[in-house]
Amino acid sequence: MMRLRIGLCLASVFVASLALAQGGIDKRRSGYQDMGPSLQKMQDDGTANPGMLFVQLGAQAWATPAGAANKACVDCHGASGATMKGVALRYPAIPEGADTPADLEARINLCRTANQKAAPLPPESRELLSLSAYVAHQSRGQPIAPPDDPRLAPFRERGAALWAARQGQLNLSCAACHDDNAGKKLAGVTIPEAHPTGYPVYRLEWQTLGSLKRRLRNCLVGIRAESYAYDSPEYVMLELFLMERARGMAFEAPAVRP
């Protein structure tokens, strides 16, 4: 009887721990896990990942003075860029003195106009992408950690609403593919869960580095919807929602994607 009771007790402990473990399993998949092993190796190898060319360019831009103030990033943030560790994990965020959120690219441009007294870099320009790749690379391997700023909540909610809203000639929402049908095939390609784990990302289709904004525009064109202007707040709202959705996932920038 005693032995049976100990056995039952052990069994229940086992079941409880199994349930706990399964509850703790993260079922989210980064696009990395849906790539073939050769592309995964390409991303992991710092001398085969073409995104690292842009990180190298970014390191040069980081040390180059610009604007009327003739200041370089190194003058305030230090030469190593290590001060930027963790920064890409928490953007979009509300910069000091502002009341609307800005993404990493917008934050870099804010630093340029406010502190360097230089003209903002155009969207998707090589210099802007290089700088954001350099900053984002400092956070590689760390978990995505959006800030707990209550002011972000309404923007994030609007992002979630955009995510769920059907639009375009195909009348699709982001959620229709990336939530409801993720993991299935679309014309031979696995539909990813759309976690922004590696932006700016080197996309083989683009043959260059591109921001999350470019990727969102890409999907908008795909569902035959009108894409928002580059400076419109909709992208930032979607980015806010996506980063929260990917909270805790490992950051991979600069990632490689097909």
Partner: peptide
């Protein structure tokens, strides 16, 4: 500006 990554 040359921008090269070499692995050897």
């Amino acid at each position: 500006m040359a921008n090269v990554l070499i692995n050897a």
